[in-house]
């Protein structure tokens, strides 16, 4: 390396140093420290005491831990497909050349800009069992005993899945971008061959945007397993919406079992890695990249 190159390297490092320092202090160190704490009895105030794998073995017998795993997986099984399909359907509609296309796109994207807390507060009232506008509407169409939504443990997770659709605007935008990239020549060729709109969607559009569907699936899995804000604000009867990340938060900050919370966080990390790997394996036959 010449002196000039070395100087430029140092100058470059100096310019990125704020990020490097921030990353090291606020991400790298906490991540490394949490590995150590996961093997300790640590209440944040007192020095950690090494307990070996006790936190991990405690998880195996902790019923609430398993309940949080169950709640999180069930929520994702409902919310993730619903969100992927709804966002795709919306994107297909918003991709149609109609008047006020831009206005429609803005309207559907707008909820994504609403802060999560504000959105959750509004949804709390929409889903109110007695005075909520949703139940009023259901009663108006003849459903005399609509569900109590969050106050009913059987309905609480589907309620939150419904709420999660409210913020699918970001996913819609990604799909829309992908739809712009579907080769027009292929669609025209299919049309000339007499393919119906449905067959063009299934055999041309979906394969062409399959990498983006796969991307949204991965992001959905990663985000879905960490669902927190809306659920902790809106709650749910009888721990029906106690998700994994919420239980980590309670252990870390409410009950001050930081060692146990750290162990839980690492199990979550491993779970996300495993599911991501599974998704990538399962999608091999379905995802088509241009040039393949």
């Amino acid at each position: 390396m010449t002196p000039g190159e070395r100087r430029r390297t140092w100058a470059g490092l100096a310019f990125v140093s704020p990020w490097l320092v921030g990353f090291a202090v606020f991400t790298l160190y906490p991540v490394c420290a949490s590995i150590y704490y996961s093997f300790c009895d640590y209440d944040v105030l007192s020095p950690p005491v090494w307990v070996g794998t006790l936190n991990y073995s405690d998880m195996a017998t902790d019923n609430v831990f398993w309940l949080s795993v169950y709640n999180t997986l069930v929520f994702n099984l409902i919310a993730l497909p619903l969100s992927l399909v709804s966002a795709l359907a919306l994107a297909l509609l918003l991709n149609q050349p109609v008047r006020f296309q831009g206005v429609f796109r803005a309207i559907y994207y707008l909820p994504s800009l609403v802060p999560a807390v504000a959105g959750a507060m509004v949804w709390l009232w929409i889903l109110n069992g007695r005075h909520g506008i949703l139940n009023q509407a259901l009663m108006a169409v003849g459903i005399s005993r609509p569900p109590l939504w969050l106050d009913d443990p059987d309905w609480a997770k589907p309620s939150l899945a419904l709420v999660s659709l409210w913020g699918c605007g970001n996913t819609v935008v990604i799909y829309l971008a992908a739809l712009q990239g579907v080769p027009r020549s292929l669609l025209e060729a299919a049309m000339i061959d007499g393919a119906s709109a449905w067959r063009r969607l299934v055999h041309v559009t979906l394969p062409a945007i399959s990498p983006v569907i796969y991307f949204n699936l991965l992001i959905g899995i990663i985000g879905g397993l960490q669902v927190f804000t809306t659920a902790i604000i809106m709650g749910g009867a009888e721990r029906s919406t106690l998700f994994y990340a919420i239980y980590i938060y309670y252990n870390a900050f409410e009950y001050r079992h930081m060692g146990y919370a750290s162990a839980m966080a690492w199990i979550l990390c491993l779970l996300i890695m495993a599911l991501t790997w599974l998704a990538s394996r399962a999608s091999r036959g379905f995802v088509h990249y241009q040039g393949d």
Partner: peptide, 10 residues
């Protein structure tokens, strides 16, 4: 149970 939950949820 349902009547009470409905009442409280309001």
């Amino acid at each position: 149970v349902d009547a009470m939950k409905n009442f409280v949820s309001g």
